[in-house]
């Protein structure tokens, strides 16, 4: 497999370290449902047979964490993005969502 690292360009997968599913966000530890939330976050996986969004670390490269969308049926890479950008966008979206909810 080869990933198009947003910083380094196309590199072989052997430069990267896998972490796992990027679907879940870390729950709020102070929520009343924190225990259940953390159990689901840490242990449960959709593990779907199709496109999988997952975290990879460019360990032998720029040290960026990446969110890679990859088809686990045929190993084709659909997209590669910086994890930081994805996380910030998710936070922005969540904040945005909360605000608009607040408005209605």
């Amino acid at each position: 497999m080869r990933f198009n690292c947003p910083c380094c360009g196309e590199r072989g997968a052997e430069e990267f370290v896998y972490h796992g599913d990027a679907a879940a966000t870390r729950p709020d530890a102070n929520s009343p449902t924190a225990m259940a939330d953390f159990i689901a976050y840490t242990y449960e996986r959709t593990n779907a047979a199709g496109v999988h969004r997952e975290l990879w670390y460019h360990a032998a490269g720029c040290h960026l964490w990446l969110v890679v969308a990859r088809n686990v049926m045929n190993h084709q890479i659909i997209s590669v993005a910086r994890a930081r950008d994805v996380a910030l966008a998710q936070t922005a979206q969540a904040t945005c969502g909360a605000q608009s909810n607040g408005g209605t």
Partner: peptide, 18 residues
């Protein structure tokens, strides 16, 4: 190998990755 896929038909999410 396919536990998650089959379990999903029964609405389950498993602590498993393939």
């Amino acid at each position: 190998g396919n536990s998650s896929r089959v379990a999903a038909m029964a609405g389950m999410r498993l602590p498993i990755e393939s």
